Computed example of a mutant assay.
Amino acid sequence: MTTLFDDLGGEPGILRLAEAWHVRCLAHPIVSHAFSHGYHPQHTERVTAYWGEVLGGPARYSQELGTETEVVRMHSGNGPAEEMFAAGAECFAGALTDVGLAEGPTRERLLAWWAESTERMDGYPDDAADVPEGLRVPRWEG
């Protein structure tokens, strides 16, 4: 079985997906709130590095940009976020379509990864300080 990193065409393919997802998020009435206070100027490139590492590519995010603890903390401490994460999943599914990923095993694996990763990101709704130190960027094998 190939990695999802490979199935998406490596970093260029993941960048296209991250760009499509980001555009959808900024236009979404619920998800756009997460970006309303600003975001890193290289947000899409950072997402690309993170997704690439998680999906079987090089460990560029953890070697150059940050830790899993920092990623989870960014998504924590905002109270229950089921509606936000559901809307984000809608944006992700739409972005898969935008980049031409039709129904099939790769799309299903990506949607399963998304569901698992948002569950992990929603694990500390009360306080970002609850996120433990030393978390490692996971490699998704599903």
Rank of each mutant, 00 (worst) to 15 (best):
A112Q: 11
E45F: 13
E141N: 13
F5W: 12
T44G: 07
T69M: 02
L65I: 04
L15C: 11
L17P: 01
H75T: 00
N78R: 15
Y61N: 01
P58V: 05
D122C: 10
R136I: 09
D122T: 08
A87G: 05
F92S: 03
L135Y: 05
A102V: 11
G9P: 01
F92K: 01
G66S: 03
A112L: 15
Q42H: 15
V23D: 14
G57H: 02
R120W: 08
G100E: 14
S117D: 12
A102D: 15
V23G: 10
R73N: 07
A81Q: 11
L55R: 02
A129P: 08
G134S: 10
S32E: 09
A20E: 03
A115Y: 05
Q63M: 15
E19P: 01
L4T: 06
G104E: 09
F5N: 00
A86F: 03
G13T: 08
P125I: 05
E45P: 14
M74D: 10
V99W: 14
W114N: 15
A115S: 15
H75C: 07
C25M: 14
A81P: 05
A129N: 13
R24G: 01
A18G: 03
W21P: 00
S76N: 10
D130Y: 11
P29F: 08
E11A: 12
G52A: 09
R139A: 00
L111M: 13
R107M: 06
G77C: 09
L96K: 02
P58H: 03
L8Q: 03
A49L: 07
G66F: 00
P105H: 13
M1V: 12
V23K: 12
E103Y: 10
V131Q: 04
E11Q: 11
H40C: 00
I14T: 07
A49D: 06
A102C: 09
E45L: 15
N78D: 11
A115E: 06
Y50E: 00
E103K: 11
P80Y: 12
T69S: 10
F35H: 13
Y39W: 14
A102K: 12
E108H: 13
G56A: 07
A18H: 00
T48Q: 10
G123N: 10
